[in-house]
Design a protein around this nucleic acid. Structure first.
Lengths: 209, 209
DNA sequence: GCTTTTGCACTGACCAGTCAGTTCAAAAAT
DNA sequence: ATTTTTGAACTGACTGGTCAGTGCAAAAGC
């Protein structure tokens, strides 16, 4: 009797095992890629026998797909929370975007391996988990698009902005800046990175203060 | 007698074979990733015998590394040309950045598979070609950093901007926006995408026109 | 007459997935 | 309270297939 769908059910023991497998898989796949990572490696790092992997997941790809869903779930929740919090505090949409940038950075700070793996797979075609990836991507980008659209409706943003494209560009800006931060200057503080991106967002790049 | 290093030497015939192999490899690896792509597939798509691959390249990874060098070479040349052209036309640094954004888009438009593959590999660790990738990344980002630094020196950009971070963010913005364009709305024109990014760069997002 | 390409058979390592068997804690029986 | 049974969870040796890389003789360019 296996239950491959996400949450509920499953004994506490089982859930703990799955968690260990996620954690082992995410770092290995981020470092080496999906195909270069063996199930034996994942099992070994999780401190579990190979058979256990197959007891808990139907296949290597299914393990990976559920890992994706799990991770992006965390991210979207966090973005949404940030947007709603600023709305509650009466901030404008620029503040909402700024808060979401920060939420994105906090997420990447906490789960750098997941982010890395996500970016690496996002634009691939012809892979088994393509559709999962699309769904999951749309969930995250939709939050940003929502804020942009509201901002346009409010008159806070120009009506001429291209919502989907701008959303993608913003996501990309944060993603790439953060990955570079983690990979090449990990000693920098989150505040540093955040303020650099804030400045870019608000067009305070040109012009000597 | 093989010659694995990059350029010069090599008959025209040989060069043509290598070119075919690059083209075959770049699409396959972009779609499936390095490890999931077999040497037999590459040879078949290039219309060449497997032995020929090994006659021209020492190994699968070497083929890939040279492919990376080759591609990023094209990109940096194109970015540099764009920056220099606007300088010659007496434009400011914002114009240079804008021209570089366009050059980036043109590049991605022409070589989407390469871009995809590059992004997928860039932040991986523990891979054989890691060092190659670092060098090559630095070459490209350095061009952007150069323009930013000159802009700061000129007083055209704020002294407070963080040059490496801002450069990374800009590259990311273009990269992600363009990959999304190619993957999810390929019917859009380059001009469309360019103007959306231009607007973002110049902080013309907030404020109704 | 060199260099380059071909075609194809071969090897040895590696790896996803399987399966017969073990463990153990909680439920059922006594 | 003690023994027995049950079944979910886990184990790890094994299998069948795949693939990077080799070897080489013959053909095709240049």
């Amino acid at each position: 009797m296996e239950r491959s769908s996400t949450t509920s059910g499953g004994s506490a023991r089982r859930e703990a095992t799955r968690q260990k497998l996620y954690e082992a898989a995410v770092t290995l796949i981020a470092e080496q890629g999906f195909s270069a990572t063996t199930v034996d490696e994942i099992a070994e790092r999780a401190g579990v026998a190979k058979g256990t992997v197959y007891y808990n997941f139907a296949s290597k790809s299914v393990l990976f797909e559920e890992l994706l869903r799990h991770g992006v779930g965390l991210l979207t929740a966090s973005l949404r929370e940030a947007a709603e919090r600023t709305a509650g505090e009466g901030g404008g949409k620029v503040d909402a975007l700024d808060a979401m940038i920060r939420a994105g950075l906090v997420f990447i700070d906490r789960y750098p391996a997941f982010t890395q793996l996500y970016v690496a797979e996002l634009w691939r075609t012809n892979r088994a988990w393509q559709s999962t990836l699309m769904v999951v991507r749309q969930q995250a980008v939709a939050v940003v698009e929502g804020v942009l659209r509201e901002g346009v409706a409010d008159g806070e943003f120009s009506e001429e902005i291209d919502v989907p494209l701008t959303a993608a560009a913003l996501v990309g800006m944060v993603l790439v800046a953060a990955l570079d931060w983690k990979s090449f200057q990990p000693e920098r503080s989150l505040e540093d990175v955040h303020s650099a991106l804030s400045r870019l967002l608000q067009g305070r790049v040109s012009g000597r203060r």
